[in-house]
């Protein structure tokens, strides 16, 4: 499964297509503590979080995440939107809570 597949799903809205639409997703990963995410998030993750600040964006880049999924109706502010566009980070948002969003990704990943 690739971030591109989210484009056709009603639960997800794309905030930035970025450079990773065709990157293979390894796993959904949930965590809002940035150091914990840096410790444990595998490369290629679809990172589901409600933490939508510039530090989240940096962590997604550095950990080599496939995409960010902002859950629970959270969105990017103007600066965040500018950053993800500049840096080509692939970002979606969803009204679903974190667990449901990750579960949906998990279901699609595992057939």
């Amino acid at each position: 499964m690739k971030p591109r597949d989210f484009l056709g799903m009603k639960e997800f809205n794309v905030l930035c297509e970025g450079n990773n639409l065709d990157r293979e997703i390894s796993v959904p990963y949930c965590c809002d503590l940035l150091s914990v995410a840096m410790a444990n998030m595998p490369a290629g993750a679809a990172w589901v979080t409600v933490m939508a600040n510039v530090n989240t964006l940096a962590v997604a880049t550095l950990t080599d995440a496939a995409c960010i999924i902002l859950a629970g109706g959270v969105s990017l502010d103007e600066l965040g939107q500018k950053k993800v566009t500049e840096q080509g980070i692939t970002v979606f948002k969803t009204e679903l809570p974190i667990f449901e969003a990750a579960l949906l990704v998990h279901k699609h990943l595992n057939g």
């Binding site: 809002d32 503590l33 940035l34 150091s35 914990v36 840096m38 410790a39 933490m51 600040n53 530090n55 989240t56």
Partner: peptide, 11 residues
């Protein structure tokens, strides 16, 4: 902001 879990040095 999501920092301050005391995991910086361990990371």
């Amino acid at each position: 902001l999501g920092f301050g879990a005391g995991m910086g040095f361990p990371n």
